[in-house]
Nucleic acid binder design. Structure first.
Lengths: 234, 234
DNA sequence: CGACTCTTTGAAGCGCGTCAATCGAGGTGG
DNA sequence: CCACCTCGATTGACGCGCTTCAAAGAGTCG
């Protein structure tokens, strides 16, 4: 919790790391300078402590967000209070931008899964910008397309693969190499990964221990893979 | 199979029913007349027999589609050959339009689940149109947004609800009334509904028989609900 | 050291997939 | 018109995979 001091302030100016993340986003990276100015003036920065609610399902949407640091959890509740994660958003990822032209209510809850800093975009302002400048419209379309592909991927993964297979897929997707040994580090705690893969934390734990016999070693957030190629055969 | 003769022909002109479906699509319904002309000239109509492949995962995308009549199945294959449906597209629904600005390969297979007629849109032509005319860009954004919301809904449903609950949700979503008795008719065969809900056909069958004690009667494609309000409590 | 929180492990149960057999509806041909 | 064939839907039996609950282990901070 070394960020506690920063955490208390809202509407801070961007620090250089957050600024770099923001500019690499599909939303901003291809924009001309005038559009960029417009987007930045429709935007504000905010920092939230872990577990803070960002918006709730059913509320009127007035803004969408881009994660600058930390992770955000999008989830929905069942009638009995069980929660199911729909998506985990990390640095550079945008969420709720589908409401620019979609429904008139937030379709799920959003919560800070850690201490986070967010860029908040006013929806009406961005709609107006997109109406006037085509590079903004194009950025919106690119972001929506990526998002949609990810979401459909998620459905396919849930329906096709078992827990160990999904975990293997996750690891493989972040291994830089094609074969041989590799080691990666989880960017968040395991319970978040579990939700992201549509699993209970216990199921993730068991999936890891199943993968031990395929050469996967886990200690804390560090994951070691003996042979990436072997893992791909799962 | 009374449509066999029509089935053989490609690039037919639109009949009036298909034309009406097409115009109500988010893609075309808000367009100005010049954009509309552009879109129609980027489009061709084709009819396909049931089970015909429309495109395969991994192919280079050159077009996206809008269903005019019949149903289309989007699915992905596992390594062992099992298939999982990602989405079922009915009349008025568009698919693969996320590749306008998304990936450079089709992300899944598309197959005619029945005899279908489709509007085929040339991607590069639509990209060019969207670049020039903002109502086209807006139509693309609207379509993508809807699609994304549906897809996220699908993830949430899969993760939150059991088979009978998902079936109940499906029925409720197409019941015009809020309470009391209702009766609806499935627009396709049950195996398609099963895939749409992420179930094996047997599981759908069992879900229906579970719902019998909640006042749901099924005969063929006809579904009768004694009390819609009671069904909502599941 | 003790009080958290996160993770792991065990045990039990349920939901769903799979395989196989049966049933029913539609269509075909004798 | 009926026997037959095919395909979709149903039902039963079985097993696997995951959730749930409970408790213990591991890490982290005061």
């Amino acid at each position: 919790m070394e960020e506690t001091a920063e955490m208390m302030n809202s509407n801070l100016k961007l620090n250089s790391r957050d600024r770099a993340v923001l500019m690499k986003t599909p939303f901003l990276n291809g924009l001309g300078s005038s559009s960029l100015v417009g987007m930045l003036s429709a935007m504000s920065v905010l920092s939230l402590a872990s577990r803070t609610s960002i918006f709730r399902e059913g509320e009127k949407p007035d803004a969408f967000y881009c994660v600058l640091s930390g992770y955000v959890r999008l989830y929905r509740l069942s009638h009995e209070g069980r929660e199911a994660d729909i998506q985990i958003c990390g640095p550079g990822e945008t969420f709720a931008e589908c409401l620019l032209y979609g429904g008139d209510r937030y379709a799920h809850h959003a919560q800070a899964a850690e201490n986070v800093t967010l860029a908040r975009f006013d929806m009406q302002a961005v709609r107006d910008l997109a109406d006037e400048q085509k590079d903004v419209a194009r950025a919106v379309m690119t972001s929506l397309s990526r998002h949609l592909l990810n979401s459909m991927d998620c459905v396919a993964n849930d329906r096709l693969f078992t827990a160990p297979q999904r975990v293997a897929n996750y690891i493989l997707a972040r291994c830089p190499v094609d074969g041989g040994p590799a080691s990666i580090r989880l960017p968040f705690q395991k319970s978040l990964l579990a939700g992201m893969l549509g699993l209970a934390p216990e199921a993730l734990s068991r999936a890891f221990s199943t993968l031990r016999k395929t050469g996967v070693t886990v200690r804390g957030r560090a994951i070691q893979v003996v042979d990436v190629a072997a893992l791909r055969d799962i």
